[in-house]
Nucleic acid binder design. Structure first.
Length: 582
DNA sequence: GCCGTTTTCGGCCCGACTGTTTTCAGTCG
């Protein structure tokens, strides 16, 4: 685990324990805020401190938290954290993670029923003790049982690539329901996060009941979690939770804004509204008449803006902010970039054929790229060390290059490059010698094995490839798998600086299992002026469709088309590629 | 605990739903 992740975990744990103790809720959220800030940092916090940077310049980190971070870096622990941990049973924090159970309830169960962990919670439910507690009843106990069973059988978050098609399919069904005017997904899915906790759907309709009913009875729904007039929630057979909010067309923009989040972005927006004498909620932006007992929309007050997101942003003096940037990571103050789109992508520079572990012939791969309107496709099969992927030795590679060049010669309307995805070996050497590499039009260098090296070794390894004069792109630089494998622990700042110096592009591997570089890394690379490649690493025709996940990740990293080599016109791209050849 | 061209103290976003209650606390997003 990286230092940032370790510290983020500690601060979140402190927030949880403070909440259990009934501490001031703002103090609780301040700790959680620091945890989030640390988790988002692309630079190792130890490096920042060693450079002499003042951590309190980061939004949400004050003197006290900065001192605690310093203490951790010096001693390996935080005294306050130890004290807090000693005050509550360790097993209580796991109970806090059960959906529907918050700090107040967990504390009640601890103090009045002796619950200290999941096992004792089960025992006390069985003994009928929980049901007798204040504000608890048979239904609540039943809900806790269901939630516990669910937690045991499912992973916590779902990959973007697994959720997006489900959401789109459900939207298709909802759009066909009579009365539905607009339907969209919101939440972390719309923001393009690499994983999502649940799917949030939004519908504007003249017939709320019909939309709610259609939603709750949709194919794949196994449990209805909530069924209100404007809000429903269901669980799918896959374990995925889906929430639906139903609104009138007049407040669609306010609702879309609200349910897209992030929560932090919304909080900032509402603060901005308050400063302008306005109140923002999911029904619209309203004048603040000082009456807060009842919501403005219930009192017939006309909103200043509500129909579209654009109107609402404009009313608080902001341009429309793309969902991918709504993370409270500077989007309110910075000049907003013209973010890259899928339509900007004109080239695929990392794809496999049957020569290694792909499923397409060279001709089929080229035909697919051409069908998508690309001006360039690079054929980049695996190098010899990737034995399981049927990597090519030099002899097979020569024959393969000849075959690729033959296809290029006879194919019109698209340039076919003879390349390779070359392993970056453990010590940073590449899997082919320079003479072989020089024969190729394009070299993508990627790490595939030994992904648990220590930070220094890992950084030196990737750095060697970045500096190699014959390498164009570093493929999936960390080798991580979303939620499954952490990948190389790299000093990204060093890698990025070298990438800028040597004009080497860093890849966003668009495969939704990889998404590597990740969003925060892309942001750091873009800010430093590095080039980014977005490649699908296609092994079959359908993999080209994964492009959108890579583009979303790029957008979350504030990437513009000008910084992405795949978006360049053919001439510019080919010149860049040729410049790395003798 | 954090923050400040109104403030270094006193604020800190807003509403729906559930399950328990006879008016609301807790949780969630």
């Amino acid at each position: 685990m990286s230092t940032n992740t370790e510290l983020a975990t500690i601060f979140q744990e402190m927030a949880d324990i403070l909440a259990l103790q009934g501490a001031n809720s703002f103090r609780v959220s301040a700790h959680a805020r620091v945890a989030r800030e640390l988790a988002d940092l692309s630079t190792d916090v130890r490096t920042l401190v060693e450079r002499g940077e003042d951590l309190t310049t980061y939004e949400g980190i004050g003197d006290k938290s900065a001192k605690k971070i310093s203490e951790y870096l010096e001693t390996g622990h935080i005294t306050e954290h130890e004290t807090l941990k000693a005050a509550v049973p360790a097993g209580l924090l796991a109970i806090l993670a059960v959906p529907g159970l918050g700090p107040k309830t967990v504390r009640l169960m601890w103090e009045q029923a002796g619950v200290t962990d999941v096992a004792s919670l089960r025992a006390q439910m069985d003994a009928g003790v929980i049901e007798q507690l204040p504000r608890m009843g048979a239904k609540t106990v039943e809900n806790i049982r269901t939630a516990l069973a669910f937690l045991e059988t499912s992973a916590d978050r779902v990959r973007l690539g697994a959720a997006l098609p489900v959401a789109e399919s459900m939207l298709t069904t909802l759009r066909a329901v009579p009365g539905v005017i607009e339907a969209a997904f919101a939440g972390s899915l719309r923001r393009g996060c690499e994983t999502i906790g649940d799917i949030d759907l939004l519908v504007a309709t003249t017939d709320p009941d019909a939309a709610g009913e259609a939603f709750r009875t949709m194919d794949g729904v196994v449990q209805v979690l909530a069924a209100g007039a404007t809000k429903s929630a269901v669980r799918l057979g896959s374990g995925l939770q889906v929430d639906l909010r139903v609104v009138e067309e007049a407040s669609y923009g306010a609702a879309l804004l609200y349910f897209t989040g992030s929560k932090q972005h919304n909080v900032r927006l509402r603060e901005r509204a308050v400063k302008r004498g306005l109140r923002l909620n999911e029904y619209g932006l309203f004048p603040d008449d000082g009456t807060h007992d009842e919501a403005p929309q219930r009192r017939g007050i006309a909103p200043v803006a509500a129909r579209t997101e654009e109107e609402i942003y404009a009313a608080v003096d902001l341009p429309w902010i793309p969902p991918e940037l709504r993370e409270d990571r500077g989007e309110f103050t910075a000049a907003l970039p013209d973010l890259i789109t899928c339509d900007d992508i004109r080239a695929e520079l990392h794809a496999h054929t049957t020569a290694s572990d792909g499923r397409l012939s060279i001709e089929a791969l080229v035909a697919e790229a051409k069908r998508r309107g690309y001006h360039t496709i690079a054929v980049t099969d695996h190098s010899r060390s990737s034995v399981l992927a049927n990597g090519l030795d030099v002899e097979r590679l020569r024959a393969h290059v000849d075959a690729i060049r033959a296809v290029d010669a006879k194919t019109k309307g698209i340039r076919v490059l003879a390349g390779a995805e070359v392993d970056i070996l453990v010590d940073g050497d590449l899997d082919y010698d320079d003479e072989t590499l020089a024969m190729l039009d394009l070299v993508v260098a990627s790490p595939h094995v030994s992904l648990k090296q220590d930070r220094a070794k890992a950084t030196a390894r990737i750095l060697a490839a970045v500096r190699h004069p014959l390498v164009h792109i570093i493929g999936h630089p960390t080798g991580r798998f979303v939620g499954r494998r952490e990948g190389l622990d790299l000093d990204l700042d060093v890698i990025i600086a070298a990438a800028v110096e040597h004009d080497t592009a860093l890849e966003i591997n668009a495969n939704n299992v990889r998404l590597d570089l990740r969003d925060t890394h892309v942001r750091a690379a873009v800010e430093a002026g590095a080039l980014i490649a977005i490649n699908t690493d296609a092994h079959g025709a359908e993999h080209f469709d994964e492009l959108r996940y890579g583009v979303l990740t790029g957008r979350r990293g504030w990437l513009t088309a000008d910084r992405c080599v795949n978006a360049w016109p053919a001439r510019r791209l080919h010149d860049w590629i040729a410049a790395k050849r003798p």
